[in-house]
């Protein structure tokens, strides 16, 4: 598996560290049922068999956080962009 870093080009997966699903959003502090919202955000996952948006860190390269869309059935990388470019 190779990930095409926007800064460094196509690099071996060993240079990257995986964090997990990019869908994580911290619930707003004034949300009702805050405990339930946190349980949902921290513990529950879609875990799809198919395209998955996820966060990778290029620790052995440019130190950028990337948002990678990858097919979990084939490991095919479908899209890579900077995590900071992620639309809400």
């Amino acid at each position: 598996m190779r990930i095409e870093c926007p800064f460094c080009g196509e690099r071996d997966v060993a240079e990257f560290t995986y964090l997990g699903d990019a869908a994580f959003r911290r619930p707003p502090a004034d949300a009702p049922d805050l405990a339930g919202r946190y349980y949902d955000a921290v513990y529950l996952r879609e875990n799809p068999a198919g395209p998955h948006r996820e966060l990778w860190y290029h620790g052995s390269g440019c130190h950028a956080w990337l948002q990678v869309t990858r097919d979990t059935r084939t490991h095919e990388i479908l899209a890579v962009r900077l995590a900071t470019e992620t639309p809400e």
Binding site: G20, D21, D40, Y43, L44, R45, E46, N47, P48, A49, T72
Partner: peptide, 18 residues
């Protein structure tokens, strides 16, 4: 291995990653 996908058919999200 496939618990999330089967549970998804019943409308469940689980604390599991494959």
């Amino acid at each position: 291995g496939n618990t999330s996908t089967v549970a998804h058919m019943a409308g469940l999200r689980l604390p599991i990653e494959s």
